[in-house]
Amino acid sequence: MQKRVGIFGGSFDPPHNGHLAIIKNAIIQLKLDTLFVVPNFLSPFKDAFYFTPNLRLGWLEQLKKSFENENCTLIVLDFEVRQNAPTPTFKTLRYIQDSYDFGENALYFLLLGADNVESLPKWEQYSWLEKNVEFVIIPRNGYTIPKNYRVLEFQEILISSTQLRKMLENGEGVALKDWIPNSILESVIKEANCKKIEKHSRKKSVKF
């Protein structure tokens, strides 16, 4: 039987309900046998992360029960976090192929946001990726998806991790309950508050 394997990578900085909705929709629409959720150490397109890789990894592990499905095995993969550096997607896929016995005929589906489509041909080993995975595009407001790509039928949730980080910085913790899963909300707010205290302490310690 041909295995169907999904890979959903990202910063998850922090994870939110939009991520969970993508996961649930992908499992059903792509009829996945296995889905890898892969937090990165640092996105190749960013200069820094807000929450540490291990925190983000731990939160996804906590959320695993939220998106478990009897027909699909969910794996929160720590491969990119363990590299301690930005990791090209093709290396992650090769690691999965080498480490898991899905068989030579397995079908691989790579989930990525519509904002990544334009830069996709510039990804490292793009030609190899194109031959080894089917790209499945997650709609994002303001981005057009070319017709040659498969699209995840998904009602976009109008929130992003960037917006959530701004809300955390502004102390809008109450509003976050609509966007961040309850099981990790307290921890996310606590870690954000610690970051603000550290930032404030550093400013006070600067001598002029």
Rank of each mutant, 00 (worst) to 15 (best):
M1E: 04
Q2D: 03
Q2P: 03
V5H: 01
G6D: 09
G9M: 08
G10F: 00
F12E: 01
D13I: 00
P14I: 04
P14T: 05
P14N: 10
N17W: 04
H19Y: 02
I22N: 00
I28Y: 03
L30T: 06
L30M: 13
V37T: 07
V37E: 11
N40W: 00
N40R: 02
S43N: 15
P44S: 10
F45E: 08
F45Q: 12
F45H: 11
K46P: 14
D47R: 13
Y50S: 12
T52H: 08
P53V: 04
L55Q: 15
L55K: 12
G58W: 00
L63H: 15
K64V: 08
K65N: 15
S66V: 09
E68Y: 04
N69Y: 12
E70C: 09
E70Q: 15
C72R: 15
T73P: 05
L74D: 08
I75S: 13
V76R: 03
F79I: 03
F79Y: 15
V81N: 12
R82P: 10
N84A: 12
T87D: 11
P88T: 13
T89H: 08
F90T: 06
T92A: 11
I96C: 10
D98A: 11
S99G: 01
S99Q: 02
D101A: 14
F102T: 11
N105C: 06
A106Q: 03
A106L: 07
L107R: 15
Y108F: 15
G113Y: 00
G113R: 00
S119P: 08
L120M: 07
K122Y: 07
K122T: 09
E124Q: 15
E124Y: 13
Q125E: 14
Y126L: 07
Y126K: 12
E130F: 00
E130N: 15
E130G: 02
K131C: 10
N132F: 10
F135S: 11
N141E: 09
G142T: 03
T144M: 02
I145M: 09
I145K: 05
N148Y: 07
N148M: 10
Y149W: 02
V151W: 06
L152H: 11
F154I: 14
F154Q: 08
Q155W: 06
I159L: 12
T162S: 14
N170T: 01
V174K: 12
D178H: 14
I180Y: 08
I180V: 15
I180H: 07
I180P: 07
L185Q: 13
L185N: 11
S187R: 04
S187N: 06
S187M: 01
S187K: 11
V188R: 06
N193F: 12
C194W: 01
C194T: 02
K195E: 05
I197D: 02
K199D: 00
K199R: 06
K199A: 04
H200K: 08
S201V: 00
S205V: 03
F208D: 07
